[in-house]
């Protein structure tokens, strides 16, 4: 089915699509049909920049187990960096990525 379970989070970051980097402004996180992973449903994350059009997209499609492990790993890495005092919790101002934006 199409679950229509989707959340969007605003982000500041960079993503690479093909040879080009682009400014990532949003991530669309859904639990719905994947395009390539051979499952009926997957945890899909699309890092996008809506201002640049649908092609500005870095996509991952994960099994539920992989998604849970990823979340734990991100938390663990951030916690470790925090413990070592190297966490730079700095807001990154929006701006053009080093590479040109994808068409």
């Amino acid at each position: 089915m199409c679950t229509m379970i989707a959340h969007q989070v605003k982000l500041e970051g960079r993503g690479k699509s093909g040879p080009q980097w682009f400014e990532v402004r949003e991530a669309n996180v859904s639990y719905d049909h994947p395009y390539d992973l051979p499952l009926e449903h997957a945890l899909n994350i699309d890092f996008v920049n809506e201002a640049l059009g649908p092609g500005a997209r870095v996509a991952v499609e994960l099994s539920v187990d992989a998604a849970r492990r990823l979340v734990k790993t991100i938390e663990a890495v951030l916690a470790q960096a925090d413990e070592r005092g190297v966490l730079e919790d700095i807001h990154v101002a929006a701006g053009p990525a080093a590479g040109s934006s994808p068409a």
Partner: peptide, 17 residues
């Protein structure tokens, strides 16, 4: 928007259909 059917479809998926 326009692009590959997959990129456009992913955008709509992210918007809840």
């Amino acid at each position: 928007g326009h692009g590959t059917p997959e990129d456009v479809g992913a955008k709509v998926r992210g918007a809840g259909g």
